[in-house]
Simulated assay, not measured.
Amino acid sequence: MDVLRTIKYNILKGYLFIFVQQKERNMSSYQVKNDVLSVSVDTSGAGLTSIKDKTGLEYLWQGNPDYWSGQAPILFPICGSLRNEKAKIGDNKFCSMGRHGIARRCEFTLRHLDIDSISLFLRADAETMKSFPYDFELEMTYRIKDKTVIVEHTVTNHDSEVMPYFVGGHPAFHCPLNDGEAFEDYIIEFEKPETAGCPVLTEDGLVNTSNRKTFLENESSFGVKHELFYDDALIFDTLASRSASLMHKETGKGIRVDFEDFDYLGIWSSANDGPFVAIEPWSGTSTCSDEDDIFEHKRGVRMLAPGQSETLAYTISVL
C-alpha cells in the first residue's frame, strides 16, 4: 500500500478506540464513540471527518473533490475573507491569509483522548506568525453525549498584546442522506419564525452590505435547492434563532446545529450541485463593503487580553 497504516486497538470501558496513523500524509486520525455515535477527527486541521450513528449511516460529507474536498474545516483567526487577503492589525502590524484563515491547514497536536472525547491543540510558531502575528493557542475539543457532538473552540492569548480574532465552524452534511432521496427532499428549519435578509457576496467572497435579498418573511423553514448556492453562501446576520436543522421534509431525519455562542450563520453548498449542505456557525463574517481594512474594525471581532482564554461552542445533534 502507498499509505502505511499502523492500527492500535485498545479496549477501554467496553469500547474500542481506533488510532490510524497515516505516515505518508503526516497525519493521525482518531475515533471516539458511545453506544449511539462514532466520531472521527484528524490532526491535520483538527476537523471532523466522520459522524456515524449505530447503524453505520454517515452524516458528515466525505469530501469528494468533484464538488468540494473539504469536510468540516476550523475557521481561525478569520471567518470568510479579508479584502485582498490582508489587513492592518495591532500596533502597525499586518496579517495576510486566504479565506477562513490558517488553522485549517495546520497540524494539531493531541492533548487528550478518552472513550467519548478528544482534544487537539495548535500553538503559534514562526510560520503562523507570518500570517497572523500573535502568540496564540487554539484547542479543539470534541465530546459525544447521547446523540450530540459538542464542538468547543478554546482560544488562548499567550502574547503580550491584546489579540483580535474570529473563530467558526464549517461542517458539511450529506444531502441526501439515503439512496433514493433527492436534494430537494430536504429543508432547513430554524427554531423560530424569521424575517431575514442575506447580504450578497462579491466574487472574492466579501460581504456587500448595500445589496441584501429578503429571504424569509416570518417563516421558520425553507426548501433546499441547488440554485440557492449558485452565488455562494447564504449569510444570516440577523437571526433570532440559535439552532438550525437540515432534515428530510417528510421523515424528519437529519441533523440539528445549535450555535448559542455565535452571532452569524452561513449555509452553503457548492455551485456545481454538490450533494451536501454546510451549516456554519461564525463569530464574524468576511470584510464588509462598508468596512475599512483594519482588522479590529470588522464586525464581531473578539478581543482577548494577554494571558486570557475563552471558549465558543456549538453542537451537532443527530435527528
Results as ranks from 00 to 15, higher is better:
1 M>I: 03
2 D>K: 12
2 D>M: 10
4 L>E: 12
15 Y>A: 11
21 Q>V: 11
27 M>W: 05
32 V>H: 08
32 V>L: 14
38 S>A: 09
38 S>P: 02
38 S>W: 01
38 S>N: 09
41 V>W: 00
44 S>V: 04
47 G>W: 01
51 I>F: 05
52 K>G: 02
56 G>E: 01
61 W>A: 07
63 G>A: 11
69 S>T: 09
70 G>A: 12
71 Q>I: 13
71 Q>V: 12
77 P>M: 05
78 I>Y: 03
79 C>K: 02
82 L>C: 07
82 L>W: 07
88 K>T: 14
88 K>V: 10
89 I>K: 00
95 C>A: 14
96 S>T: 10
98 G>M: 01
101 G>E: 05
103 A>K: 04
104 R>D: 12
106 C>W: 10
106 C>T: 13
108 F>Q: 04
120 L>Q: 08
120 L>V: 08
121 F>Y: 15
121 F>E: 15
122 L>Y: 05
125 D>W: 03
130 K>A: 06
135 D>K: 09
136 F>K: 06
138 L>I: 05
144 I>Q: 00
145 K>D: 15
146 D>M: 14
147 K>E: 15
150 I>K: 12
152 E>D: 15
153 H>I: 14
153 H>R: 13
156 T>Y: 05
160 S>M: 11
174 H>K: 15
183 F>C: 06
190 F>H: 11
191 E>W: 07
193 P>R: 13
197 G>N: 03
201 L>H: 08
201 L>K: 05
202 T>S: 12
204 D>L: 10
205 G>N: 06
213 K>P: 09
214 T>R: 15
216 L>C: 09
217 E>D: 14
217 E>G: 05
218 N>S: 14
221 S>C: 15
223 G>M: 15
223 G>P: 13
228 L>V: 09
233 A>E: 04
233 A>S: 11
238 T>P: 04
241 S>V: 02
241 S>M: 00
248 H>C: 08
248 H>N: 14
250 E>G: 04
251 T>K: 09
252 G>C: 05
252 G>T: 03
254 G>E: 02
256 R>A: 05
257 V>W: 00
258 D>A: 14
261 D>V: 10
263 D>R: 05
263 D>H: 06
264 Y>D: 03
265 L>Y: 02
266 G>S: 07
267 I>M: 04
269 S>R: 03
271 A>R: 11
273 D>M: 07
273 D>T: 10
273 D>Y: 08
283 S>K: 00
283 S>R: 01
284 G>A: 02
284 G>D: 02
284 G>R: 00
284 G>E: 00
288 C>H: 10
288 C>Y: 01
291 E>F: 03
293 D>K: 12
297 H>D: 13
298 K>H: 13
298 K>A: 11
299 R>L: 12
303 M>L: 09
308 Q>P: 05
308 Q>M: 12
314 Y>F: 15
315 T>M: 06
317 S>F: 07
317 S>P: 06
318 V>Q: 00
